[in-house]
Design a protein around this nucleic acid. Structure first.
Lengths: 215, 215
DNA sequence: GGTGTTTCTACTGTCGACAAACGTCTTCTT
DNA sequence: AAGAAGACGTTTGTCGACAGTAGAAACACC
């Protein structure tokens, strides 16, 4: 049997945990994180902590403050900017995904759509949120354009916290599943222009929903 | 006298050097870099090298290959994607810059425009390239939107190599200086919509120029 | 009491060392 | 001769240690 699960390094684990905690607000904006403190808290040496902090710094989730790292997190302005950027870029990803479509890709998208329908029918908000993430990440990957992936996927991760809120609105969740299905179909048919337009509209809707919730 | 120059850590220096070397092609695509090899070559220990490699990995300039890191660099596809993304985002930066304009910001932009005119009159292509970089970075910063900065500035860095080619075309360089001046003026006047449109058109022109050169 | 100076403490930057993982080459067996 | 098994070398992941530094606190002096 092929080796399928590559061992995750401690540094990766620390990064995943800290990223999640910061995005979800476990570490609030303004909190100071020190390498030694985290090392003790997580029971590892400073080396993997350092690596994780540097990556968080590069994603601007924390900032070096001379004395420790201060948590920045995601502000409401950030969130608006993220949606504005996604609104302008994510259609490109869908376009290229449609242009590069393969039978395997179609299958992958269909699987995600099926999952989405399943969790929707079960009213499982948490899982719907994950599938939503996966759907958008999958299309980014299917575009085959690395720069687009690198631009979009960090933005997807940063919206995780708020995605939960949006998906909690059941009418919107129903609309999302419908829009996703239409996008997947356009991509499967290789209709790049349609996929691009549907995706852009989808993000615009999500942005409007988000603005509405914040008020 | 105030301490003005913060000491740059070895890791930062290594990162800057490697990033430059990869973007400018000193390390060609496909070359394998090992931590130990670089440590010996640069005369530092593996720790700062590791940190630099991880950051390069996050920018997808290299990829971990199990045995060392393989240089990816910037492909022509990447470059096209970068310009497509900038074309869609950089107008936003200009828009916000115009909205947040301050007297200091106006002065900074005017200074960059003056510099640009100066180097243009001296036919100094190399310096023009730097000023071009600075101009676009400055507008990103003036937008005051961190997510936009984080999206655009890495893309600016990655186009450094090709910017030199473009600026070598003297007609285009003249046009660039004119377009920059118009953008700076729109921003200084606080005209966000105009700044956005001028900036977008400017990037579109640059993209078209780039495509023309590659053929 | 306020201000400049010194000390102190906590943190980061860097290093060398050790162990685990992975591929490679040799060697043994059939 | 071909294939399997094991030894070897290279590279990375992780650790603890040491030095340098920057801010804070304590102290002395006016």
């Amino acid at each position: 049997m092929k080796k399928r699960f590559k061992s995750i390094s401690l540094a990766d684990q620390v990064f995943d945990k800290l990223e999640d905690d910061i995005i979800l607000g476990v570490y609030p904006r303004g909190q100071i994180l020190t390498e030694l403190g985290l090392a003790e808290e997580l029971g590892v040496s400073r080396t993997p902590i350092r690596e994780a902090l540097r990556r968080l710094e590069q994603e601007r989730l924390i900032a070096d403050n001379g004395k420790g790292s201060v948590v920045l997190g995601i502000t409401e302005d950030d969130l608006l900017d993220i949606m504005n950027i996604r609104e302008r870029i994510e259609g490109l990803a869908a376009y290229y995904a449609a242009k590069n479509i393969t039978p395997e890709a179609v299958q992958e998208l269909e699987h995600l759509i099926d999952l989405q329908d399943f969790y929707f029918s079960k009213h499982d908000v948490e899982q719907l949120r994950y599938v939503d993430d996966d759907f958008h990440d999958a299309i980014s990957h299917l575009s085959g354009r690395m720069v687009i992936c690198d631009t979009l996927i960090p933005l997807h991760r940063k919206t995780r916290r708020y995605r939960r809120l949006v998906m909690g609105d059941w009418d919107r969740a129903a609309q999302v599943t419908k829009e996703h299905r239409a996008i997947a179909q356009a991509i499967a048919e290789g209709n790049g222009d349609l996929a691009q337009e549907l995706m852009t509209r989808h993000i615009v809707h999500s942005k409007e929903q988000l603005i509405k919730e914040e008020v």
